[in-house]
Design a protein around this nucleic acid. Structure first.
Lengths: 207, 207
DNA sequence: AATTATACAATACAAATGTATTGTTGTCAA
DNA sequence: TTGACAACAATACATTTGTATTGTATAATT
């Protein structure tokens, strides 16, 4: 990614902050007023430069037609990291836009995990699993089933007798369960979220 | 949430899809053309109704000033789930907007986990931890440090001799490490993501 | 029967908006 | 010193855009 001058970076930061605060990109004149310009032209210049350098794209004749490049709204995923260097370009293995993944599919919902019946699979109390709502699943899937008004997360397994559910606790025995009629398949786990900043996981509990 | 008529839902879905595809909300006339109206007025009517019913808000005199309500861009987090019912309103304990969390803080980056030195903390090979870049951390934090060009995830602990780093594997011994000068503190883990749909975690490996 | 809500059309208008033209100033490398 | 680039100002203009006014038709509700 080509480097920016101080002024160019100021314009880019304004756009990023504007999108964050208003959830829509700014117009040319909103940038103009926001940065104290007295004519639209300097903004046009800056936008063209920012586009040429790959930081955004301008949609022709579209109001608020500024689209920030993925780098700026996604988070980079690093494979290896060089010592000293903060983030080197060559270390980036790709980008994930978690927000997009979670919002483009309509039938997703979160489920806060209670208990430790899946601790062996790295899913702990208070974690949030993101579930894709579907009445079916494949063997090997991590599924959410409901029985007696309570939701469970289990591995869906298969043996000679057919499908069954398997818990995955660290200690204690959870018997395998058959797929009976009182079980309601809610969906399949597609994501797992754990937030360390809001609620610190007690390491002694899971250590 | 109040229910929508068929036509109203059609307008709402158009807006949702438009935002997803164009990353900006549509104008009144874009909705008009998109749904085959021959005047802007019906769109205005629908927007006002959708606002009254709580599905969006209209910003006065702002182009593309349609802001979808959080329910539509966030995912609900359920506490308990009733049997049979798919998702009941009273079960929703809140909403998370993961995309917003990840994009509002600027100094976040993802790091794909290699190895199983933190499997005991539920962090496994190929998981992605989201790191807040900072040169400091508190005891109890899950931190990312770099040594010899390699990144490690460790608990930051404290005893009478001061701070030290602790691994958290399921099996095998990882000795505690001192905070030496060749260690580079990259930041603190604030989120953990595991994607079950793209890459299935082998349950036998972590079970 | 009267009222209300839904749903759409035609037209109008001031303000906002992307874009273009022309020009000035300063910096820096060739 | 010449040319390329960055950075900004003043002005202009055709469209776009949010919004308003007036009106028609249908269905549901009171």
């Amino acid at each position: 990614m080509k480097s920016l001058t101080e002024k160019q970076d100021r314009v880019l930061q304004f756009i990023i902050n504007f999108v964050r605060d208003n959830s829509v990109p700014p117009t040319v004149r909103e940038i103009m007023r926001g940065l104290g310009f007295s004519s639209p032209r300097p903004v046009q210049d800056h936008l063209k430069i920012l586009q040429r350098k790959g930081y955004l794209t301008i949609k022709n004749k579209v109001s608020r037609g500024i689209e920030l490049s993925p780098h700026l709204i996604e988070i980079p995923v690093l494979g290896r990291v060089g010592a000293g260097k903060v983030i080197a370009e060559q270390d980036i293995e790709g980008y994930i836009d978690v927000g997009k993944i979670l919002t483009t599919s309509k039938d997703l919902f979160g489920l806060r995990v209670k208990g430790s019946s899946m601790a062996g699979a790295g899913i702990h109390d208070q974690d949030i699993v993101v579930v894709c709502r579907q009445p079916f699943a494949d063997p090997g899937d991590l599924v959410v089933v409901v029985r007696n008004g309570e939701a469970f997360i289990r591995w869906l397994r298969k043996n000679d007798n057919g499908l069954y559910l398997q818990a995955n606790a660290l200690e204690g025995e959870y018997p395998n369960e058959e797929l009976t009629d009182d079980l309601n398949m809610m969906g399949k786990v597609v994501f797992m979220l754990r937030n360390y900043s809001y609620q610190l996981v007690n390491p002694s509990r899971i250590g």
